[in-house]
Write a protein that binds this DNA or RNA. Structure first.
Length: 270
DNA sequence: CTGAGATCCTGGGGGC
DNA sequence: TGCCCCCAGGATCTCA
């Protein structure tokens, strides 16, 4: 499940291997994975473009092109961006292929085909609906506190809402709530000041540590160079049903919030 | 505006 | 052993 730290890791790898290259040829093997802008075939629109940068916004990888347009890529659950050496075979489930100058191929693979690579025109406000970057200076304790006012939704559901804070998914929501000792189903508005302070710190801390370890490889996440992350070894609650809490020893429980598995410690998180 | 629920997919796990 | 069923999960859409 690529969330902020995984996409950040992918983007850093891509920046090293594809920036400066020109897109020579494009194949869209599954149309919906790279929907064409009105009137122009996707492949035609992108061919000949030079890649000037790669960055991240929330869980999106943004490939910036010399014309000012961008390829905004959402990996959802099983999407992968794969840098292939010349003549290396395509990764299974590769639905979009960008052949670059020098023989490098960027493949967009996705077993479940939920991912999307969207061509965005210069100035198009594609991320207007996305909230603050949690690792930016805009994500202050005060900003976080005011976001929680009058919100009745469970705090975990709030953390997953990309319109408020961009980039937190199920793994890091669970981990941050455990670190802050906050009950995931607590209404957002019911958190007191110390809890808000702890949770703010935990969100920033857990995302930063996960980036340092190149993300979490549960299921089969790998970065653009095929390397696994390391944070799966540092998880405290996610996926650890029945295992002892590393803080208090009581077994980790799993409940469901907003149709998502939620792992937490009933003893520590109140 | 907020919040709840459906939708999309497929490998894999559980049940029998 | 084999087969069927059902489920997880993020973003987007619809609806109340």
């Amino acid at each position: 499940l690529p969330e902020l730290p995984e996409v950040e890791t992918i983007v850093r790898g891509l920046a090293r291997s594809i920036v400066g290259k020109t897109i020579r040829r494009v194949q869209v093997r599954l149309e919906k994975m790279a929907p064409a802008p009105p009137g122009i075939p996707f492949a035609h629109a992108v061919t000949g473009e030079r890649i000037t940068g790669v960055r991240r916004r929330g869980k999106y990888a943004v490939i910036e092109l010399a014309s000012g347009r961008s390829l905004v890529t959402s990996l959802r659950m099983t999407g992968r961006l794969v840098v292939q050496r010349p003549n290396e075979p395509d990764f299974p489930g590769t639905h979009v292929v960008l052949d670059l100058s020098g023989g490098t191929r960027l493949g967009f693979a996705d077993l479940r085909t939920f991912g999307r690579m969207r061509l965005v025109e210069p100035g198009e406000p594609w991320d207007a609906g996305l909230g603050v970057e949690p690792l930016s200076s805009g994500f202050t304790q005060e900003a976080f506190m005011s976001m929680l006012l009058k919100r009745t939704t469970p705090i975990k559901v709030f953390l997953l809402d990309q319109r408020r804070i961009a980039g937190i998914g199920n793994i890091y929501a669970c981990e941050a709530l455990w670190e802050a000792r906050v009950n995931p189903s607590r209404p957002a508005q019911a958190l007191n000041k110390p809890a808000i302070r702890r949770l703010h710190h935990a969100v920033v801390d857990v995302l930063g540590r996960a980036i340092d370890m190149r993300g979490t490889s549960v299921d089969d996440y790998v970065d653009a160079d095929g390397l696994r992350g390391g944070f799966q070894n540092a998880l405290s609650v996610y996926g650890r049903l029945g295992e002892p809490c590393v803080r208090c020893g009581k077994p980790i429980v799993r409940t469901v919030l907003a149709q998502r598995g939620t792992w937490w410690c009933k003893n520590c998180q109140r």
